[in-house]
Design a protein around this nucleic acid. Structure first.
Lengths: 119, 119
DNA sequence: GAAGGTACCCACTTCTAGGTAAGCTGGTGG
DNA sequence: CCACCAGCTTACCTAGAAGTGGGTACCTTC
């Protein structure tokens, strides 16, 4: 019941309609590195360098760009300490945690089934 | 407890490692049109033309390409009736349904919060 | 006999996400 | 005095994602 109502919303004026703002957020979240950064931060807050090492394969440019978008959308909090050398910590906001609560089950399932799927 | 174990898997040898096959499946699922096609099919099975109209903005080429990938990954079932004019029905497989079970909560949340996020 | 409906495929072009590599800051250790 | 740390920024370039416009098959209806 509840599900069918939500589905109706999704498929009528929801994410399937081209003009819906959710398309933009969807692009941000499902961007190549967006998901991975969110997953990495879901475990604990991390510094720039830790993130870079953790999310294997990400370039500095793309990490910076991805973090900027996620920060603008209010998913990620950036805390810079004006020390030398600089130290910047990234963590999830409450909104970010709401997102990852829904993202992690998906990622876990994909990780668990990827082998079988590609076979 | 359960969660922390799963998270450990994800962040050590899981999706964050560059060589993990889950990266490939992730790209398929989170491709621009992949998500939307899966959402559309989650409600009911649809014919080619219905899908095209439902997923606003998708071109024929991209719809065909997306469906081919989702079919190869075993998420979508393609049933062609050799009638004239041709009729092709697309539906979710069991595996596809497992996926959308985890995908829909995310999409619903994004759709519900997109306005606030972009503000 | 002309037009249209359905589900595509292919060649060509465009665009943009993403990769690469360099530079910048300003103290601190050699 | 030079290199080095961390955390970026910038300019440049390319591969592949995506759009465009055509064609195809076969039968039905006008």
């Amino acid at each position: 019941m509840k599900v069918s109502i939500k589905l109706a919303d999704l498929t009528t004026d929801g994410i399937l309609s081209a003009a819906c703002p959710s398309r933009i957020v969807l692009d941000h979240v499902t961007s190549k590195w967006g998901v991975l950064v969110l997953v990495a931060l879901s475990e604990q807050s991390l510094r720039w360098g830790e993130l870079r090492r953790m999310v294997e394969g990400v370039s500095e440019k793309m990490l910076a760009q991805t973090l900027k978008v996620l920060e603008q959308d209010g998913f990620v909090l950036r805390v810079a300490q004006p020390t030398i050398p600089p130290r910047v910590d990234y963590s999830l906001t409450d909104r970010g945690r709401e997102l990852t609560d829904r993202l992690l089950p998906l990622m876990e399932w994909i990780t668990a089934n990827a082998g079988e799927i590609l076979a």
